[in-house]
Amino acid sequence: MAARHRDVLPGAGRLHRHGRPPGLRDYRRRGRVRLRGATQADCPVWMPFPRAVAAGPYRQVLGEGCVYPAAVPTLGNQLSAAGRSWAAYLQDMGNDPARDHTVATARGPACGHPATWVGDHTQKAEKGDQYAARHDGFTFFRSVTANQAFCAAHIVSFRPLPADLAQARTTPAFSFLAPNLCNDGHDAPCVTGAPGGLAQADAFLAQWAPKIMAAPAYRDGVLIVVTFDDGGDAAACCGETSGLSPAYPDVPEPGKTGPGGGRIGAVLLSPLIRPGTVSTVPYNHYSLLRTIEDIFGLPHLGDAAMPRVRSFGPGVSG
Rank of each mutant, 00 (worst) to 15 (best):
R4G: 04
D7W: 13
V8I: 12
L15F: 08
R17N: 08
H18Q: 07
P21M: 12
R25P: 01
R25E: 12
Y27R: 08
R28Y: 12
R34A: 12
D42C: 07
W46T: 05
A52K: 08
A52M: 06
P57V: 03
Q60P: 00
V61A: 00
V61R: 02
V61D: 00
A70Q: 07
A70K: 05
T74C: 06
G76W: 00
Q78T: 06
A81E: 12
A82F: 05
W86I: 03
A87G: 00
M93Y: 03
N95W: 01
D100L: 03
H101G: 06
T105P: 04
P114A: 15
A115G: 13
T116Q: 15
T116A: 14
T122Y: 11
Q123C: 08
K124H: 13
K124G: 10
K124L: 14
G137I: 08
R142Q: 14
F150E: 04
I155M: 06
P160G: 00
L161P: 00
R169K: 08
F174M: 10
F174P: 03
S175M: 14
A178T: 15
D187I: 00
D187N: 14
A188V: 00
A194T: 03
G197H: 12
A199F: 02
F204N: 00
A206L: 11
W208R: 02
K211L: 15
I212Y: 00
I212N: 02
G221R: 08
F228E: 09
D229T: 01
D230H: 10
A234N: 02
L244I: 14
V251H: 05
E253A: 10
P259C: 01
G260A: 09
L268V: 14
S270W: 08
L272T: 14
T277N: 09
S279Y: 14
N284V: 10
R290H: 08
R290N: 01
I292L: 08
I292K: 02
L298C: 06
L298P: 03
G302P: 02
D303L: 05
D303H: 09
A304F: 07
A305Y: 09
A305T: 05
R308P: 01
R308H: 11
S311D: 05
F312Y: 10
G313A: 11
